[in-house]
């Protein structure tokens, strides 16, 4: 019994550590004080200020735009990759796996720098295409992980039945495989969207001069003096992230377990 009580106490302490800073951040978004100071006085002024802040709104639009394109490209690439690699030899699978997971092991700082140097080697200025490519490279592993987790659950015999009933490959893909993996494609797309939307490091190195994304704006605000407007936008980001995680979890259901195996 004592063991149980101590366990729940410890769990509570861990959760306070995990959530207290985030909770305070969100609470302070609704606090009147300019310096995140107590006592707490409810106010919507920072959200109102946010709605007037065209710079942050433009940055948000850019981030959504970039993340949406990244999401779509990643889903297409990841789906093709998974379909192509699933019946290959274990050697090819291992090769594919290590190449795909490479961007997860190399610090993003180095990925960003090396792409910047690629631009220099090619004699190009920073541009949107390279920014997009950078985002695709780092988001792709996550989309692949989600898709492969789902494909492990797929029953191969349904597909074989389709072939033996005389359907060709395209028909089988369209009418059998696609309906089975489309939820995972959606979940993988959302995942890639979120990774790209939140990504600061890659954008920081590759963003063309004069444009900006939301994480870059937040970083420069933190560095050069911030107001609780940052709390307000952070609160919105956190709520959105939670919604997306919820969507991914709902779509994936029991396949989520394959992810942490």
């Amino acid at each position: 019994m004592l063991k149980k009580i101590l366990s729940w106490f410890y769990t509570a302490v861990v959760f306070i550590f995990l959530y207290a800073p985030i909770a305070v951040l969100m609470a302070m978004a609704f606090n009147e004080s300019q310096y995140n100071a107590l006592p707490f006085k409810f106010s919507m002024r920072w959200f109102e200020a946010l709605s007037q802040n065209t710079r942050l709104i433009d940055a948000t639009k850019n981030s959504i735009y970039l993340a949406a394109i990244t999401g779509v490209i990643c889903v297409i690439l990841a789906t093709a990759l998974m379909l192509g690699s699933r019946d290959t030899s274990s050697k090819i699978k291992a090769l594919v796996n290590s190449v795909v997971m490479l961007p997860l092991t190399i610090p993003w700082l180095i990925m960003g720098l090396s792409l910047l140097l690629l631009l220099r080697a090619l004699g190009l200025d920073k541009n949107f295409v390279m920014l997009l490519i950078g985002h695709v490279v780092i988001s792709l592993p996550y989309a692949v992980l989600i898709l492969s987790a789902r494909m492990q659950d797929m029953d191969k015999s349904i597909e074989e039945a389709s072939y033996s009933l005389g359907a060709n490959e395209w028909t089988t893909f369209r009418r059998v495989i696609f309906p089975m993996i489309s939820p995972a494609m959606l979940a993988g797309g959302f995942m890639a969207f979120m990774i790209s939307f939140d990504n600061f490091v890659l954008s920081y190195f590759l963003i063309p001069t004069g444009t900006t994304t939301l994480p870059i704006e937040i970083y420069s605000s933190i560095k050069f003096g911030f107001t609780p407007e940052i709390n307000a936008i952070s609160t919105i980001i956190l709520v959105l992230s939670l919604a997306i995680i919820g969507i991914i979890a709902a779509i994936m259901g029991s396949s989520l377990k394959n992810l942490i195996r």
Binding site: I22, D198, F200, P215
Partner: peptide, 11 residues
Amino acid sequence: WTSQLVRAYSW
């Protein structure tokens, strides 16, 4: 799964 920057800012 929440933004790295937002969490750094929260601290």
